[in-house]
């Protein structure tokens, strides 16, 4: 096809322009970012709408009720489930009752069902993984035989030559004290003794170290995202496309400079710091 290269060219330029438009937000809010933002929200909303119908309402409701797909896919009990699915249709229509002010209160019924169903469903799954399993995981020996290698004694201190994740008395102590003290920090009752106060203080130290370590470790993943974008921009910056990265960059910077001079003459702008004068464009 003849038009293939044209489509490709347009696609590359669009990719580069949209990427640069979002990055221009790092400088400040500007027409490029605004346009990209609004287009993005619109396209995403349209996509959500499409997905809701295509991936949920059509297969789980329409096909289920009318085309007999359930007979192939579902096993036992498909018959009654097929009949019951009409309830979902009723609920869905009740939600839409919000659009008619007189009967909008009835939309609370499906909401109540959704809230109850999901709250009950998710309540205990989290409790199992985040509470019961963690309690069990904290029961570690402080000294004696290590529970990883039954006939080896736990060393007192972590050994430097080995991996830091090797269990030792100190490491296990850190784990147990950390968990207990942070839990103590989460006591809300007013009556607290000196001991619990002290333990709670240790708890907040652990919380702060945790936050610092987590922050530091996530930086890595975030920077790879930027690297990925820059690779994309560089890959597209080919002569057969007309150097979209360089041209787009120069174009955007030039337009922004003109826009800035036109709308912010004599305006003291201090927008990198909090409360700075973001002039109201209009």
């Amino acid at each position: 096809m003849d038009t293939a290269w044209l489509v490709d060219l347009a696609g590359v330029w669009l990719t580069v322009i949209f990427t640069l438009a979002i990055y221009s937000f790092l400088y400040r809010d500007n027409p490029f970012y605004k346009a990209a933002e609004h287009l993005y929200v619109g396209v995403a909303a349209g996509y959500t709408f499409y997905l809701a119908f295509r991936n949920t309402i059509f297969p789980n409701l329409v096909q289920h009720l009318f085309t007999g797909v359930h007979k192939i896919n579902a096993g036992d009990g498909a018959g009654w489930q097929m009949q019951w699915r009409w309830g979902a249709l009723v609920l869905g229509l009740l939600v839409l009752a919000r659009l008619i002010p007189k009967v909008s209160w009835i939309s609370r019924w499906p909401m109540a069902l959704v809230v109850g169903a999901f709250a009950g469903l998710n309540l205990l799954g989290y409790a199992e993984a985040n509470l019961a399993d963690q309690i069990a995981g904290t029961m570690v020996p402080l000294f004696g035989r290590s529970n990883y290698a039954p006939y080896e004694l736990l060393p007192l201190l972590p050994s430097l030559g080995q991996q830091a994740s090797q269990p030792s008395t100190l490491n296990h102590l850190v784990l147990v004290v950390g968990v207990i003290s942070v839990l103590t920090y989460f006591f809300f009752s007013r009556e607290r003794s000196k001991a619990t106060n002290a333990l709670g203080t240790v708890g907040i130290w652990f919380v702060m170290i945790t936050f610092g370590a987590t922050y530091g470790s996530i930086v890595l993943a975030r920077i790879s995202l930027l690297i990925g974008r820059v690779y994309d921009l560089m890959d597209y910056n080919q002569p057969q496309y007309g150097y979209p990265f360089v041209v787009g960059m120069i174009g955007i910077v030039a337009v922004l400079a003109v826009w800035r001079l036109k709308y912010f003459k004599g305006d003291k702008v201090n927008d990198g710091t909090p409360g700075g004068g973001e002039g109201d464009e209009g």
Binding site: L26, Y27, L226, I227, V230, Y231, M234, G272, T273
Partner: peptide
Amino acid sequence: ALDRRWIFSAVAILTVIFM
């Protein structure tokens, strides 16, 4: 109280240079 855009520029420039 460095304007954060200097930091942004430094990040961008370092990324490109080291690539």
